[in-house]
């Protein structure tokens, strides 16, 4: 019973860690380059969830002052502000990776890493 309670208490953190590892697993095991990019994004989401969970306060309100508020309990604003940055960075990296995949498909005709390695091995003696 105790264990279950603790799992429920820490579900955000556990979810973050699980997403991080699922993403890493996707990157490591899948040979499809698009799936690798998806894996990177899952990893990123895991880290962001973990970071945001640190700022959570139970019963807290969003950190915005409105008229007539007296001694409110706000959630921690810093993780939200930091992860805003993190999300934008993750978007930029994703777009760059996608553009590379487009070029790889145009030049090699495949987006599978194994086939790519085979093609590159055949073409190695370039000069």
């Amino acid at each position: 019973m105790n264990i279950l309670e603790r799992i429920v208490e820490n579900i955000n953190y556990l979810g973050g860690a699980a997403l991080f590892l699922i993403g890493l697993h996707t990157v490591v095991t899948h040979t499809n380059l698009i799936k690798k990019i998806i894996g990177i994004n899952i990893m990123g989401t895991g880290v962001f969830l973990f970071f945001i969970a640190i700022g959570n306060i139970e019963g807290g309100t969003p950190p915005i002052w409105l008229e007539g508020m007296e001694n409110p309990i706000f959630v921690n604003p810093v993780p939200s502000a930091l992860i805003l940055t993190g999300i934008v960075v993750s978007v930029s990296v994703t777009v760059y990776l996608l553009s590379l995949v487009i070029r790889i498909f145009q030049t090699y005709g495949t987006i599978d890493q194994k086939e790519l390695a085979e093609i590159m091995e055949q073409e190695v003696p370039h000069d």
């Binding site: 991080f20 990157v27 990177i40 990123g44 990776l97 590379l100 070029r103 790889i104 090699y108």
Partner: peptide, 16 residues
């Protein structure tokens, strides 16, 4: 292109 792809993938894992 494949070299840069691998580089940026591992770089991103490192950053995360």
């Amino acid at each position: 292109y494949p070299a840069a792809f691998r580089y940026v993938l591992l770089n991103e894992i490192g950053s995360l």
